[in-house]
């Protein structure tokens, strides 16, 4: 039993207060963000992008139990979709929402293309092969100069706009990302609670027994890969639009590892955990910016500490969004 749970069992009233506090802090942060200097808003935007990536990858890692180390590939697919369809590179200037749709579809397709060859793999083998896949995508982008501009990347991307409203300032992206994160979180959470989500959990627990109760594990896994990749790709398109520049450097293995770490540290299989994990791994390095080299050492120590005191993550799987909302309303 986790600390949060045992506290909750012992003192329901105080746990309700904690839930209120969490919501109050979240709303206060959201309300305060537009008034912060641009630099801070950019940090918060990048935090939201990582939360979005975490929500996507968690479907495969947390819900279905498949260790995917190549997630950054889908992020790249989304970013380059925007870069190619809204820049002088191919002289295409499609509307932002249309590109989001294209990116989502391309993400789903690449998700399935990656999924098919790794269907039989699990655990370490899966991790290695997906890691390779992520690197292959990056290397292709790096070498396909005529299309992607190679290592130089693609610059001067169009300013995004939605229905005539320009999305250009960090604060515009903040609102856009907030809506997308909330939507993606809602979809992921409802998927987890759906019958498909139960099947993902069954595959995670015992794949063979899952087949034994009639689950077509191939389809269920591909559905997980596809939804996860779709979210990753959407995150990439928004990232491209907000940077207005993409290059292969943004899509290294390190990024994949960072997202996995976020999930593991925050609480695998739990959207609330991802928010916590992202907050620590994205915000702390910013806070510690002044300490330069010491930063990595400090983060490493913190990670070791967290893994020892909270092996199931900061917010364990058992304390999902439904629990938090339930607490708020005193259920």
């Amino acid at each position: 039993m986790s600390v949060a749970e045992s506290l909750a069992a012992a003192r329901p009233r105080s746990s309700r207060a904690v839930a209120f506090l969490v919501f109050a802090i979240a709303i206060a942060l959201i309300a305060a963000t537009p008034f912060l200097p641009n630099y801070y808003i950019r940090v918060i935007d990048s935090l939201l992008i990582y939360i979005l990536l975490g929500i996507g990858l968690n479907i495969v890692i947390g819900y279905t139990g498949l260790l995917d180390l190549g997630f950054v590939a889908f992020y790249a697919v989304g970013a380059y979709s925007y870069a190619l369809l809204a820049s002088p590179q191919l002289d295409l200037h499609l509307p932002f929402l249309l590109i989001l749709l294209v990116a989502a579809c391309l993400g789903a397709i690449t998700g399935i293309l990656l999924g098919i060859p790794v269907l039989r793999l699990r655990g370490d083998y899966l991790a290695i092969v997906t890691l390779g896949f992520g690197e292959i995508v990056r290397i292709i982008i790096n070498n396909l100069d005529w299309l992607t501009g190679g290592p130089k990347g693609i610059a001067r991307l169009d300013k995004a706009s939605i229905l005539g409203i320009q999305i250009a300032r960090p604060v515009d992206f903040f609102w856009l990302l907030l809506v997308v994160v909330l939507l993606a979180g809602l979809v992921a959470w409802r998927l987890e609670r759906s019958i498909l989500g139960k099947a993902w959990a069954a595959i995670r627990e015992d794949q063979d027994a899952a087949r034994g109760i009639g689950i077509n594990t191939t389809n269920a896994k591909l559905a997980a890969f596809a939804t996860s990749a779709t979210i990753g790709s959407i995150a990439g398109a928004i990232f491209g639009a907000s940077q207005r520049f993409v290059s292969p450097e943004s899509f290294t293995l390190q990024e994949s590892v960072l997202i996995v770490l976020m999930i593991v540290v925050g609480g695998i299989g739990n959207i609330l955990g991802i928010v916590a994990g992202a907050a620590i791994l994205i915000l702390l390095p910013e806070v510690l910016r002044e300490f330069a080299e010491w930063r990595i050492l400090f983060l490493g120590l913190l990670m070791i500490f967290l893994i020892i005191v909270r092996p199931a993550g900061i917010v364990p799987r058992s304390f999902g969004p439904d629990k938090l909302i339930g607490r708020l309303f005193g259920k």
Partner: peptide, 9 residues
């Protein structure tokens, strides 16, 4: 519950 996957998916 997960056994209803084939009929409900």
């Amino acid at each position: 519950e997960v056994c209803f996957y084939p009929s409900d998916v």
